[in-house]
Computed example of a mutant assay.
Amino acid sequence: MAAVISIANQKGGVGKTTLTLNLGYGLARMGRKVLLIDVDPQFNLTFGLIGMDVLNYETTNVGTLMTRESSVEETIVEITENLHLIPSHLNLSAKEIEIINAYNRERRLEKAISPVLPDYDYVLIDNPPSMGIFLVNSLTASDYVLIPLELSYFGVIGMQLMFNLMAMIREETNESLTLMGLVPNKFTRQTKVPQTRLKELRETYPDAPILTTIPKAIALEKAQGEGVSIFDYEPEGRAARAFEKLTREVISIVEGE
């Protein structure tokens, strides 16, 4: 049965999509079967993986899946043998209104993907930067939450919003939701600010696991722009090494290896 992991942060621009894409490729490279789900109406993950082919999935995307207009089996797109995608689409924002007014709206995603969970080792969900019905669905369907953040003042302060939301989800829809960890992203040693913020983060949230730090790297942006993983674009670079370490860390947490 798959471990379902939401990559989430209510703050935008923290690298959720980059983390989802490269962690997904990292897990697939290590022999795990991975399903990526894009529940962000901006569809950056989908575009990064299939480009303009996103236009072909008007009737089979995560929105139609959650409104029960398509089945999960017909909605899955194969990227590689071990890496599959449930795409987002331009019409996802319009579907939000239907989902909000639907019965049992918080569990639409959970129920939709349950038939295929035995077919995968990991499900990674890329989320929008807002507290709406898509994020609530994602957290309700998940076993773990992975939170990327930038080590800025507002990035650290914003963690409390995520922790409050997780507490609400545990109370209302998913009592077993677990914080897998925080992933400091776009880290640079050129100034002392990120290191100071990392120290503050540890002091403010001593019980929150802090996982591998991902360096700021132009290669990550270029790789995503070309629709490839950092492992293919710059396999010997700092970012690829960091993502490989993070991948092993995630496997260790989930599988105890």
Rank of each mutant, 00 (worst) to 15 (best):
V250Q: 01
V4G: 00
A240S: 15
A223Y: 12
L109H: 00
G24Y: 13
V77H: 03
T17V: 12
S70P: 07
A2H: 08
E73C: 06
K245P: 02
N185P: 08
G132S: 04
V250G: 00
L146I: 13
L179S: 13
T75V: 01
G227K: 04
E78H: 09
Y25D: 12
L45V: 14
S93Q: 14
E150A: 11
N91E: 08
K111Y: 08
G227Y: 02
K33M: 06
R32D: 08
T64D: 02
L179W: 01
I97V: 15
G225E: 14
P184Y: 11
L124S: 13
G155Q: 12
L35F: 09
L182C: 08
R202Q: 15
K11D: 07
A223V: 13
P129E: 10
V156Q: 04
E78K: 13
S138F: 03
E244A: 12
N127C: 15
A2N: 09
L161Y: 11
D38C: 10
E234R: 11
K186Q: 14
L198W: 07
E74F: 06
M159G: 14
R202K: 15
E203F: 00
S70E: 06
L246H: 00
T75S: 06
K199D: 14
I113H: 04
D143N: 12
Y120S: 04
T140E: 01
E74V: 05
L49C: 00
V254L: 02
R108H: 02
M168T: 15
A167H: 08
A240R: 07
Y233R: 12
L220E: 03
R105P: 05
Y57G: 05
I210D: 07
L161P: 01
E171F: 05
